[in-house]
Amino acid sequence: MEEEEHEVYGGEIPDVGEMDGDLEAPNPDMEMAAADEDAAKELDEMKKRLKEMEDEAAALREMQAKVEKEMGAQDPATLAANQAGKEEVDARSVFVGNVDYACTPEEVQQHFQSCGTVHRVTILTDKFGQPKGFAYVEFVEVEAIQEALQLNESELHGRQLKVLPKRTNVPGLKQHRGRRFNPYMGYRFRRPFMSPYMYSPYGYGKAPRFRRPMRYMPYQ
């Protein structure tokens, strides 16, 4: 059988061996380098996210510390020391009521200077800056309290002052004032519970009224 000749346009047909030689085999070093580069990128991203989380945690701690500082949060030892100091100051102070609204701290100090050395005079005001009509007088000596109590019902600006020892407010303890007796209303008591079967059908506090039957009397 005769072999047929094939005409090749543009050149000769390459052999199979030459075609296999042209294909390069994969390089394992290049693949390993690419894998290492991807791992390095992932590690950098993880470090970046971890840094962001640490920054957020630091910002939260700073914000919490700021809020606690504004709210005056302190440890129990500091609170106990402050409470003890406040009690010591209150033991050297008196409450002065029925103070004239036009009275100044200097005038209150002059009124109580005969009792002892006045350290501070505080006239309480409302949120609008108007006096509330009472003040606190703090002395240097504890013995001055008894002398200041002797000025109870003394007059200042034509008004009788009410002088009492200052009370120490305990944090977290609210003083409950009972309801005062009203002579016009008296004490109100709740009506005891009564079953619906015990109610009178004729009204509260009323008894049934029976009428006598009428007789026919034609010759009256």
Score class of each variant (00 low, 15 high):
E5C: 09
Y9R: 04
Y9S: 00
G10S: 00
G11V: 05
D15A: 11
D15K: 09
V16F: 07
G17M: 02
D20E: 05
D22G: 07
A25P: 07
P26A: 09
N27K: 10
P28E: 13
P28R: 11
P28H: 09
D29E: 07
M30C: 07
E31R: 15
E31H: 10
E31K: 14
M32Y: 13
A33R: 15
A34V: 13
A35I: 15
A35H: 14
A35K: 15
A35L: 15
E37A: 13
E37Y: 12
D38P: 01
A39Y: 11
E45R: 15
E45M: 14
M46P: 00
K47C: 08
K47Q: 11
K48Q: 13
R49A: 09
L50Q: 15
K51L: 13
K51N: 11
K51I: 07
E52H: 14
E54R: 13
E54H: 09
D55I: 05
A57W: 02
A58Y: 03
A59C: 03
A59S: 04
A59R: 06
R61F: 08
E62N: 00
E62F: 00
E62T: 01
Q64G: 11
Q64F: 15
V67N: 06
V67E: 08
E70N: 09
M71G: 07
M71P: 02
G72A: 09
D75P: 03
D75K: 08
D75W: 04
P76G: 07
L79K: 07
L79P: 02
L79Q: 06
Q83V: 03
A84I: 03
A84G: 06
G85K: 05
G85A: 09
G85N: 05
G85S: 05
E87I: 01
D90T: 02
A91W: 00
S93H: 02
V94S: 00
F95D: 02
F95S: 08
F95W: 15
G97I: 09
G97C: 07
G97S: 08
V99M: 04
V99E: 01
V99T: 04
V99A: 01
Y101M: 04
Y101R: 03
A102R: 11
C103Q: 08
P105N: 10
E106R: 14
E106M: 13
E107G: 08
V108H: 08
V108W: 01
F112D: 06
Q113R: 14
S114V: 09
S114L: 08
G116C: 02
T117S: 12
H119P: 01
R120K: 10
T122C: 14
T122L: 14
I123N: 00
I123P: 01
L124Q: 12
L124P: 12
T125P: 06
D126K: 15
D126I: 14
Q130G: 01
Q130D: 12
P131N: 05
P131Y: 04
P131F: 05
P131L: 05
G133P: 11
G133L: 07
G133I: 04
Y136D: 00
V140M: 12
V140F: 07
V142W: 04
V142M: 10
A144T: 00
